[in-house]
Design a protein around this nucleic acid. Structure first.
Lengths: 259, 259
DNA sequence: CGTTATCTTGACCGTCGTCAAACAGGGTGG
DNA sequence: CCACCCTGTTTGACGACGGTCAAGATAACG
């Protein structure tokens, strides 16, 4: 564990700033948090649902997903995690954990002692606000996924996932034919949208045949971005990018920091 | 709008206490919030997704649900709301709203000016913690619903919804044959679990035929609670009842309240 | 370079959606 | 108090979307 000032947690700040304004003071307070660095191999579990983790995990590099399973071994992926994201914000507010998190690619993770982060959140309301804003966006994504899984057909579900992933990777203005890297297998796509990997394959093949998509290995290009969005019924509003609460005055609270 | 001390918001406190310890000071601060009382008829919209509501709504009596729709008119219910629940906690942290809320029965609702509640939340961290804990439980329910809709068959989905609703209504130890009142139509059940109302009906009829359920109007009795849970794969852990973060010391913050 | 994971395709089948029509129930007004 | 209407429930016949099973091709990886 290190208390040295370092920029390892910088991706976390960047992510928070997608949805909130983070002051320099807050940034420094976060960067000063103690943490342990860990490397998690592909396919390895990052967090289990049967305990109350003592650490808050933040992905610095790589991709992960949260999932739940039924007794008979079926799996539902409920969320994909991108670099900078804190994996268990819930930890700060509820005691027990209720799902599993697994590394999708090799991941670099910062583990912050829960007590330290909770202490910081209590003393700096603005940081709580930032973390919770991120959790609220996750909630919004959950709602969107429910709509997709519950009420759209296979084509739309797969298309929607591709659209969301592309936008979340930060390519807001995706150029026609712009390439991006898909870290998930067709099995995982299926587990996320409630289909079998076989049917995901059929859908992807169809998109390629129709000239909507180009795919080589895990590299994907959108040849007809408009059409893909249309098939998906995609509208990025639910991602709340650049959607912070404005005009909130934290100055009262800035006066009595603990650090 | 009234600033008089009153107990109208008492159901809100009760609900918060399901997941958090709420001190008497916090309770009083919440009860002292200004609010407007409104009555919303069945089927009427409570909140729309196209604006940034100036009020935080709390259901005092009745039931409501949140939903999203596709372009071609399909609807997915993403959440049911019970008395005491705050409907748009997200409002405190993000600017824009992303779904619709509708009254399922005639509802009595308290509308608190967003600014007032946000001000209180900023000055009393413990209240923020309580509100966010509630939002986190909602998130956990979203994840569970995704598993149900994405990976379970029709019987399990309907059974799961019934189990969840019964437990959430507070009947933790449900007596065999204990009756409870279901406020939703079969159409709404279908919209919540990703089925048509027709198929929901087939499933319910089957449960009745098998002697698992008794139904008369909106009154439902569980004749075989164990079996229903088993069909559903239901485990109430995800509801996080009585699962607050313990041993957190808010005393530092209690010293400098704004009020 | 061998081994394992992932992808791909085809044939077949089942769950659940669609369409249609009858039935119950509960509020409202005459 | 009855007649009416609207909303919600119930049932049947039929079809389709996507699951299942199986087997071969390709790619990833040590």
């Amino acid at each position: 564990m290190s208390n040295l000032y370092s920029v390892a947690l910088a991706p976390m700040i960047a992510k928070l700033r997608l949805h909130t304004e983070v002051s320099d003071d807050d940034r420094d307070a976060i960067l000063a948090l103690p943490y342990i660095l860990r490397t998690i191999d592909k396919r390895r579990s990052l967090m289990r649902n049967d305990n109350s983790p003592e650490y808050c995990a933040i992905i610095l590099k790589g991709f992960a997903f949260s999932h739940k399973g039924t007794r008979d071994g079926l799996r539902q992926i409920v969320s994909f995690h991108t670099p900078g994201q804190m994996l268990n914000i819930q930890q700060l507010f509820l005691k027990s954990f209720d799902h599993d998190i697994q590394a999708m690619t090799k991941c670099e993770v910062a583990m912050i002692p829960t007590a330290a982060l909770r202490h910081l959140a209590l003393s700096r309301v603005s940081i709580t606000m930032a973390l919770v804003a991120q959790a609220m966006v996750e909630s919004s994504i959950y709602r969107q996924w429910m709509l997709n899984v519950g009420r759209r057909d296979a084509r739309a579900r797969v298309a929607h996932l591709l659209c969301e992933f592309a936008v979340r990777l930060g390519d807001e203005g995706i150029a026609l034919g712009h390439a991006y890297y898909i870290p998930m297998t067709q099995q995982q796509i299926g587990d996320a949208v409630g289909l079998t990997s076989i049917h995901v394959n059929r859908v992807l093949r169809a998109f390629i045949r129709e000239g909507v998509l180009f795919k080589k290995g895990s590299e994907v290009r959108f040849l007809q971005w408009e059409k893909l969005q249309d098939v998906a019924g995609f509208n990025s509003r639910y991602l709340h990018v650049g959607d912070p609460v404005k005009g909130v005055d934290y100055s009262d609270d800035a006066g009595h920091q603990r650090q």
